[in-house]
Design a protein around this nucleic acid. Structure first.
Lengths: 224, 224
DNA sequence: CCAAAAGTGTTATGTTTACACCCATGT
DNA sequence: ACATGGGTGTAAACATAACACTTTTGG
C-alpha cells in the first residue's frame, strides 16, 4: 500500500518556542537574532524545522537547546499555526510552545551556530520579527495571560519565592484590570494558594516585603 | 532555496473528528464503519487525510461532510496526536476536533463512498476502533468534560431548550461527583446562566419539567 | 522627617453548602 | 393512593468587594 495522492504529502512542521520570564512584574520574551538566510539579521522566536521521526515536544526542546543552549525546562504546547503560506518551500505547520523561566537562574548563549544574538524583550516593546513570528507571539502572549490566571504556571518562575506586590503587579498587567491590594493578599492567603516564608526581600518600595512561595499541594484553578 | 534534509519532509496529517451528542443525560459519540482497507469493517472516528493546501478546520469539516454528510456545525480543535508510528506509510499527525450536536436535529448518512454504517455509541460502551482511535477518543472525552464544565459548549446541543434535571445529570456524570439538585438549580438561575421558557417537557419523572435555555449574553466561566 | 511602598482590619454583600418538605403526574 | 421524579425555602459558612490607617525603610 502506498500514498498516491500528492496532496496527502509534502508537508513539514516548525516548532516555535515562546520563552517568557517576568522581571519586576513585567513580562519579557526571549528572542534570538538569526545569522542564516532567510531573515538573516532579524530577531525571531526560538524555532526551527522538526524532524519526521521525532515527537513535537522533543523537537521543541532540541531547537531550544540548539539556538540558546537552554535545557531542562518545561514547555507547554499551546496550538498550531496552519496558514498555508508560512513557508514558500513546503506546507509547514508551526507547533507553538510556551516556556516560563526565572531569568536570574537561567543561562543562555548569545551566539550559536545559527544565532548571532539573544536577549529578553519586554512584550510591550517587540521589534519586527522574522516569518509570522509577531502573530505567533501575540497568540502566545494571550495564552500566557490565560495560563497565569488559571493555572499555577507561575510556580515555574519563582523557585526562590516572590513578594505579594510583585505577583500582584503581574496579575494586574496580565488581566488588564486593577485588583485591590488588600483583597488580593487576603485571597491568596486565606485560600492557602501561597505560603509564608520567613524571609523578606525588597521589591519596589523602601520597606522590605515578605517572601512567599506557591503551595504545590493545591490544584490549579481560575483565580480572577 | 530548497529543503535538502529529508528529515524535514515526508510528513502528512489526518484530521479526526469526535462528534458527540447527549441523549437523556448520557454522552454518545458518532462512529462510522469503514468500508475501505485498512481496517475495513472496523468502527472508527470520523477522520481522513488532510490536503497540503487546506486549513486544518477546512479539512475537518470536509471529512465530516464526506463520511457522514453532516455540514454547518462548529468544530473545536483540541490537540495533536504526534505518535511517530500512527501510520506505516508516512509520519502522520492527527489534528483532533470536537463537535457537539443535537442528535434530534441532525441527519447523517449510514452509508457513503467510504463508510458502510454510522451510529451513536454511548461513551461507556465503545468497541475496538481502527488505528489509535480509542486512545484519541479517550483524550477527546476528557476534553469534552472540561469544556462542558468551563464553557457553554452545551449551548450547541440544546437549541430547543432542556430541563434542569437533564443537564444536572450531564454535569454529575461528566464531573464524576454528586451535585445537590436544589443548589444546582439555584446556581444556574441566580447567576442567570439559564433562562426560563414557558414550556414544560417530561424528562425521566412523571411530573413534567420546565424547559430552560442557555443565556447567550453571558461569557463562559467555570461552573464547578 | 518625608516619600514610597508594605502591611493590616472591618463591614456589607454575594455565593455556596447542607438540608426537608410539598407538588404534579402516570399507573 | 402511591411511587417517581420535579419544584421550592431557609439558615450557616464562606468568599468577595469596598474602603483607610499604620509601619518600615532609604534618602
Amino acid at each position: 500500500m502506498e500514498l498516491t495522492n500528492p496532496l496527502y504529502k509534502n508537508m513539514g512542521a516548525h516548532v516555535v518556542d515562546t520563552i517568557f520570564t517576568i522581571d519586576k512584574g513585567r513580562i519579557k520574551v526571549l528572542l534570538i537574532k538569526r545569522n542564516n538566510e532567510p531573515y538573516r539579521g532579524s530577531w525571531a522566536l526560538v524555532s526551527g524545522a522538526m524532524y519526521n521521526n521525532e515527537l513535537i515536544e522533543t523537537a521543541a526542546l532540541r531547537e531550544l537547546k540548539e539556538k540558546t543552549n537552554i535545557s531542562d525546562i518545561e514547555l507547554t504546547f499551546i496550538g498550531v499555526d496552519d496558514d498555508t503560506d508560512r513557508s514558500p518551500l513546503l506546507r509547514m505547520f508551526a507547533f507553538i510552545h510556551i516556556g516560563l523561566v526565572d531569568f536570574q537562574n537561567i543561562k543562555f548563549l548569545k551566539e550559536t551556530e545559527k544565532t548571532m544574538d539573544a536577549d529578553w524583550f519586554d512584550i510591550n516593546d517587540i521589534p519586527e520579527l522574522a516569518y509570522d513570528h509577531n502573530k505567533i507571539l501575540d497568540y502566545a502572549i494571550e495564552k500566557l495571560k490565560t495560563m497565569i490566571n488559571s493555572s499555577n504556571i507561575l510556580k515555574r518562575i519563582y523557585p526562590n519565592g516572590f513578594t505579594i506586590p510583585e505577583i500582584h503587579k503581574v496579575y494586574e498587567s496580565t488581566l488588564g484590570v486593577e485588583i485591590d491590594r488588600r483583597n488580593f493578599r487576603k485571597k491568596l492567603l486565606t485560600q492557602k494558594i501561597i505560603l509564608d516564608t520567613n524571609e523578606t526581600i525588597t521589591f519596589e518600595g523602601k520597606k522590605p516585603a515578605k517572601k512567599y512561595i506557591f503551595n504545590d499541594e493545591l490544584p490549579d484553578k481560575k483565580l480572577f
